[in-house]
Amino acid sequence: MDETASASSQVPADVGALDHLPGWHPGEQLRRTDKAVTIAGRWHGHDVVAKQLTSSERHWVKRFTHEVSSYRAFTDAPPPWPVPRLHHAGRQVLIIERLPGKSPHTDRYPPRLPGRIVTGMIDALTGFAAWQPPPGPLSMPATDWPARIRRYAAAGDLPDDVQQPLLEAVTSAPLVFGHGDPLASNALDGAGQPLVFVDYEFAGMYPPGADLALLGLWLGRHDPGAEQRCAQIAAASGSLSRYQAMRVLWLAREQRLYQDLFDTVDDRKHRQWLDDQAVDAIAVLCLAVGCR
């Protein structure tokens, strides 16, 4: 969902910062959201993508800064998968290498994707979880999970009796590296090459199964079999209870998002689907671990 942000949260795109960068030659605009615009171009003879932050909201400024830090960390300690080379970073502008391939889809909840795409996304996420990042921004918890659980419960987004099972699930195993935002629009599928993810603004340490639970949620709207595959992978790795807990938390977040945007996203069918999924996810968690 790329809803337009309020005027108060918008700042002029840092066009001047790009236009006056020696060696920069703009090409086509690839995508515009409520927080940023991405533009293809050339940088000193290299194919690149420039990302301009267009929101002044504290949250997105922080995420943009984290993304820059992520690419710098990848430079210092390259992971075992392709990541874009960082060419330039400014206050509102990020220029990275343009990797081959294109996004499988741009919808948050895409229609049923080809099986090889789903497999590629799952493989990429399991690869993330197997990697140990170096000390620094990528080795830090992505958020304070116990605090988030308490905040959601206090706001009425979670039943009181699931607080303790959720807390136990997200703290019962060491955190693993995760992408944190495995949207189809954040993936690149190139012919004859493994699918890769880009946009590391939410990258960090997560409970095991968190990435898979989020991918399963987004793909499962139109492809329940994809969600089942994600759950099976989590079960095979011994992370099913964390997967189930994170599915409850991700659904609570999606419900909050759609509640906030209900006036602009009048999709009652999807909101009902989210509500039904949340009820089922809580029931599954309680059946597995017990809720008091």
Rank of each mutant, 00 (worst) to 15 (best):
Q10W: 08
R31P: 04
R32C: 12
T33E: 12
V37D: 05
W43C: 08
W43A: 09
Q52V: 14
S56E: 14
V61L: 15
V61A: 15
R63W: 03
T65L: 15
H66C: 04
S69P: 04
A73L: 07
F74D: 03
D76K: 13
D76Y: 10
P82T: 10
R85H: 12
L86E: 07
I96G: 00
E97Q: 14
P100I: 04
L113S: 01
I117H: 11
A124Y: 01
L125W: 07
W131N: 05
P134W: 06
G136A: 08
D144R: 06
P146K: 07
D157I: 04
Q164H: 14
L166C: 05
L166V: 07
L167G: 12
L167C: 11
V170G: 00
T171Y: 00
S172Q: 14
V176N: 00
S185F: 11
L188D: 02
E201A: 07
F202D: 06
M205Q: 10
P208V: 04
D211L: 05
L212P: 00
L217M: 11
D223G: 07
A236C: 10
S237Q: 14
R242I: 11
Y243V: 04
L249R: 00
L251F: 09
Q255A: 08
L257W: 11
D263N: 12
R271N: 09
L274T: 00
Q277G: 06
A283M: 10
C286P: 04
L287P: 03
C291Y: 01
